[in-house]
Nucleic acid binder design. Structure first.
Lengths: 187, 187
DNA sequence: TAACTGCACGAACGATCGTACTATTACCCG
DNA sequence: CGGGTAATAGTACGATCGTTCGTGCAGTTA
């Protein structure tokens, strides 16, 4: 019981890193097993199918995201500061490469966006959750008549910075995003 | 010459559609050949390697993008209208699924963003070109002291709408993006 | 000690990947 | 019309994909 659970944890810890760069399709069982020095069949037995491995990887990434971004930002009491803190944590989460391939969800969202199925559904739900947290923080701070609209715009800045930094290999976009966030929040 | 060129065109026309959904890695030569009812080896001979096929596919997608977005918008003379027109064409390009998987460059940019190489370089250059066109239009309209900053924000709205519509399967995000663009342009 | 359970292993499956050859067709030019 | 070249087809390769199966080892329970 205990031994198996620890192995599973190790597998997923490595899986999220690989998937953030190579995608959930590029995450091959053989490659993952080789990296971890375990047998392909032993690893496979933990999940039963590739799709289950992919879903478990998304779950693991979501936990990391929550611990890195949402959790820390929610220590700030409801206020405009909390909204800024959420975005600031998100930008740091991308910039410091909590996942080596940048934002995990941007990577796999683009991969499965055009393909309906359980994986896309899981990603969509997590995206809704994140946007919901931001919108609620905005609503609680009473800083905007349309919290969802502002949440959309703030999230757009963050995602754009993540994408630009990855493609162009520099950090300039994060400064642009920070400036845009501050302007949108009236700072 | 003529016969071969036409075949190449047919191949790339199908390739961009597949790659916009499955990515440039998911674009397999066998699958592509089957779809087009040609032999795998005959198709392969046109490019010599998979990477060359991928680069040619990016080139073909860029031409379509130019014809669908940049070209039409540039008929509007330099002005705030031109800036809005550029963004409006972009949103239509994504919403009407000129590529079945949404924006081709968002898809493959996420795929190769974390992986240096010729493909990422090609994507980065095209991204720079697009942002440059938008920034120049802003500068010519003299609507902002920092055209690059505004171009970043407008592009962010568009990309976010593309991603959201794909993942969530609805068109709401395009209205949010349009609202954000109009607000940013002071309309 | 005997039976059972959880976990990982190696070997092998058929399918598909990108790529390399050779053979065959189809077209252009003299 | 015939010869040469460009374009396509055919076949085969080694590698890797996801998956299945049977087996052995470790630890717990009876």
């Amino acid at each position: 019981m205990i031994r198996g659970e620890q192995t599973r944890r190790n597998i997923l810890a490595r899986a999220v890193d690989i998937a953030s760069v190579e995608g959930l399709e590029g995450l091959s069982i053989g490659r993952l097993a080789t990296d971890l020095d375990v047998s392909k069949s032993g690893l496979f037995a933990h999940f039963g199918s590739k799709e289950e491995l992919q879903l478990a990887t998304i779950e693991a990434a979501a936990r990391i995201f929550y611990a890195e971004v949402i959790g820390p930002a929610l220590v700030t009491p409801p206020s405009p500061d909390r909204v800024y803190h959420l975005l600031d944590r998100w930008l740091a989460y991308s910039r410091t490469r909590v996942f080596p391939g940048g934002c995990f969800f941007a990577r796999v969202g683009a991969e499965f966006g055009g393909r309906p199925g359980r994986i896309r559904d899981a990603i969509a739900e997590l995206d809704c959750t994140w946007l919901g947290v931001v919108a609620q923080a905005i609503a609680q701070a009473r800083m905007e008549s349309d919290p969802d609209q502002l949440a959309f715009e703030l999230n757009a800045y963050a995602r754009a910075a993540n994408a630009a930094s990855l493609v162009h290999g520099d950090d300039n976009a994060y400064e642009r995003a920070d400036r845009a966030v501050r302007a949108a929040l009236g700072r």
